[in-house]
Computed example of a mutant assay.
Amino acid sequence: MKADLHNHSIFSDGVLSIKEIIYYSKKLDLDCISITDHDTLAGVVQAYTLGEKLGISVIPGVEISTVDHKTNRSVHILCYYPKDIFKLQKFLNSTLINREIAKRKMAQMLMKEYPITMEHIEHYSSKSQSMYETHIMQSLADLGYTNVVIGDLYKELLSKRGKYYVQITYPSVYKALEITAEVGGIAVMAHPGQFDSIELLEELAAKKLIQGVEYNHPKNSKETKKQIKDIAKKYDLIMTGGTDFHGYYSASPNPIGSFTCPEGEVEKLIRLSK
């Protein structure tokens, strides 16, 4: 099966709707797709329903934002096949609220330098379950201050090193994995290469807190992929793959289906879910 298991829609910080992602995934001859919006399961039912109609398998998923307090690094956990989406969403809502508060503070500070309005930003964020930097940057692009949403101006203003950045409070990775287990989900560490998380990957695998790891991803280098493969073999982890699709809301955009699961791995994930 050709499966892309990491994609974002307008329900978080992606450009396309659920309908558009499912449609184009089918058009690109994918057999399986998962929409893993940040900290929200808002699109799960719609995606599954559309997938049934179009004849493409949809794996329910969500990308959970967490932090490893030992290193103070971000850790993203992909949760697939959660059995109790309402319990999981209740846990995730605090992150959505914290993100909204932080981004609005960033926007308010930015307004002192640029003539954008909250109404303009909300035009882009209203369909999302929270506000993101991309929505703020899109407003600046509309006014001609940049023609690239995630580019140099974003780095200067709103990135983690930007002058208007406001820190968000995220749950512990261990708490997120505990909730994932409670709702019957399958826990997969996302893109270990992005946050230099190989050591944590092995730690979580040894404790049997995760069942998989994202192997094929644009932020995983060749060396990182070798390390992932070794750890996956040692601890019998499923190796997934995903494009981390956001459309043009990305510094290095990749089309849907650019990064897929290694052969036979999505079948392991499906079997485990049953």
Rank of each mutant, 00 (worst) to 15 (best):
G264H: 11
I33W: 02
I150V: 11
L201Q: 04
T224S: 08
D68F: 04
T243E: 01
V44H: 05
A102Y: 07
Y249M: 02
L30M: 10
G185Q: 01
I97A: 15
A206R: 13
N147G: 15
Q89I: 06
I238Q: 02
E203V: 13
D68A: 09
G184A: 07
S197H: 08
G151Y: 03
G193A: 07
K26H: 12
L92D: 00
S65C: 09
K105N: 13
I101T: 07
T260A: 08
S94W: 12
L50C: 13
E133Q: 15
E214H: 08
S25W: 03
V148G: 14
E122D: 15
V75R: 06
V75N: 01
L177R: 04
D31G: 14
C79R: 07
P60H: 06
H6Y: 08
V166P: 02
S159P: 08
V183I: 14
G162H: 01
P253N: 10
Y124S: 02
E156W: 09
I85E: 06
D39N: 10
P255Q: 14
N254M: 05
F86S: 10
V173M: 01
I238F: 00
L41R: 00
L30K: 05
G43K: 03
F259E: 05
I77K: 00
F86N: 10
L157H: 02
H8I: 01
G212F: 01
C32W: 02
L30N: 01
K226N: 11
N254G: 15
N72L: 15
T146Y: 03
G144Q: 06
Y114Q: 00
D236K: 11
C32F: 00
H76L: 06
R99I: 04
K90W: 14
T66S: 13
A141V: 14
Y249F: 14
I121Q: 02
K27P: 02
K207Y: 12
R104Y: 11
K160T: 15
F245D: 01
D29W: 06
V188Q: 04
L201F: 08
C261V: 07
G193H: 00
L157K: 02
V62F: 01
T117S: 09
L54E: 09
Y248E: 07
S221M: 14
T169F: 15
F195L: 15
I64Y: 01
H217M: 06
A176F: 08
V149Y: 05
M106D: 10
K53A: 15
H217F: 08
A47S: 15
T240C: 10
I21H: 00
G144V: 08
E182A: 10
I210Y: 05
T117N: 11
P218I: 07
K274G: 12
G55F: 10
V183T: 09
V67S: 12
I18S: 04
P253Y: 11
